[in-house]
Design a binder for these strands. Sequence first.
DNA 1: AGGCGTGATTTGAACGTTCAAAGTCTCGTA
DNA 2: TACGAGACTTTGAACGTTCAAATCACGCCT
Lengths: 326, 326
Amino acid sequence: MATVADRAQVSRQTVSNAINAPHLVRAETLARVQAAIDDLGYRPHRAARTLRTQRSYLIAARMHKVGSDVLDRFLHALTTRAQAQGYRVMLFAEDDDAGEVASFDELLTDHDLDAFVLTGTHVGDQRTEWLAERGAAFVTFGRPWGATAHHGWVDVDGAAGTEAATECLLQRGHRRIAFVGWPAGSGVGDDRRDGWSRAGAAVGLDPSLQRAYEDSLDNGRQACAELLDLDDPATAFVCVSDTLALGVWTELTARGVRLGDDVGVVGFDDSPAAKVTRLSSVAQPVDDVAEACLRMLHDVIGARESDDSPPEPVLLPPTLVTRDTT
Amino acid sequence: MATVADRAQVSRQTVSNAINAPHLVRAETLARVQAAIDDLGYRPHRAARTLRTQRSYLIAARMHKVGSDVLDRFLHALTTRAQAQGYRVMLFAEDDDAGEVASFDELLTDHDLDAFVLTGTHVGDQRTEWLAERGAAFVTFGRPWGATAHHGWVDVDGAAGTEAATECLLQRGHRRIAFVGWPAGSGVGDDRRDGWSRAGAAVGLDPSLQRAYEDSLDNGRQACAELLDLDDPATAFVCVSDTLALGVWTELTARGVRLGDDVGVVGFDDSPAAKVTRLSSVAQPVDDVAEACLRMLHDVIGARESDDSPPEPVLLPPTLVTRDTT
DNA sequence: AGGCGTGATTTGAACGTTCAAAGTCTCGTA
DNA sequence: TACGAGACTTTGAACGTTCAAATCACGCCT
């Protein structure tokens, strides 16, 4: 920077201004500085800037547990878009809320991180409170389940997704549409169940036609088997996840059922496995989520300390991808 | 840090030494400094340290294109392990070698990155040369295909994987074992084909029983159909990827073939979709790869400038996961 | 003529660390 | 008694930026 200043016949500070506050610099001078910068290929040093300004242009994101296709795609979108705005994404990996908070602390204090993107919000989430207390900038991909929002969030309207799935199956003539979900209390799971309930209630479907299991292929099979073996069996399955849906699919395939014709299935997340098995599924618009997160983060970072009202939440609609199982 | 120094009745530098070079400090003093650090909850500021030492304790990794389960898991393992050693992983996303090199440049010059982890090495890779020229520390997950190694690398022995797959199918009694691969020249693809050739040659299998297509489900179906419709059809398929294998699986399922009994299939990568469809597949030991990468990186970072011979490469054996299709 | 405001630029200090060199203390030895 | 060696500690400067305040040049008003 000193070299640039010398060559442009100005002081360090003018170079700094030319870069960070060009309106303070006379046009003629600006051009001279710009030329010097180009000639010398000068680029400001981030660590020095961070040291002085307490801003790192870094965003932290948690490296999710493996096998989560949605979060993987989200992270990709986030990285790409952050980069376009001059930010970089820094990863951390933790197993639970407590560990994550410990990471926050280190990242915030030691690395001057500018913002955090949280995924997988859940009931009783301890992370948001911690961050809010510290006055850290953050947004969540996921609603503040069971709490009032004291922070910006972006989420996908799961209920709308399962509702659309249910309506699609209704149109195909199904009247025994079951829901295969997660145990109550999970926020996301309850929301997706609500969508099915809503669509069902509108036309008087049997609201008891449902099962709740932890997320696994085997549990999907199990649920499917139970619902098929009823006196008045289910003819279609709306599932809270692709994992359970693929379990259902497995059971149906094993029984030799004609998928799409006799029985319908819809999953959630549109995972690669759904594409392979031609399973219909509700797709989350992860690119849009990432975009919205960054926009919101931009506002939050700017408005921190001055403004105390959280930004307007964003709820995005998912898309039903219709394949062979509906 | 000044506060710690005051409280411990020592100078800044002694605090610094207590942290970075404890052997230089008298035990008694060390204890006093340590106590002060604990009392005040002091933690050194990374940006300041980076500014002075030119070291960031940051490792760059590329955020792979979506849908690559192996790289996703690798990234997770890398993050976890790096973190345990005091490093953090910084992401970048680029579409091609040129873009990636541009990112390297920015990360190296502006952010003082300590090291790079490259994935997806390929024939004519421009990235390694660029990094080597700059004297940057890096390792690759993937061999330097078609070039002599001027850098440390870790890879999985693909040929050993397909060889094991082929031998497994031989044991099941198959004698018409086909290979569904990628077009020649891709390094990884050729290597995996070699494993099949090797195992086949040992017992005199037909070496022409193979197809080469770009990686997609449809191409897998296509290849499968062609190989089944031969006068002397294939009875088993060793595939270069799960994508192609799942294409094969789709075609076989559509034809109502009894998988595992009449016909065998083995994929590569052990993706989630393989688990769902009960497809046998060759699994890469990504955790071990990440571990080896970091160990190697540690050596490279330490030895930079002094030592010029690259570290010993690491080639790890994959594991054949046997499910219903063998 | 002198003071004043405004826009452009410079100066000195500071951010929090570590490097390089110099300083102090203790002890064994000539 | 002094001297050098070794162990430990301190001092001043530096890393590359930006902040806050000072300075400068210039035209305008009274």
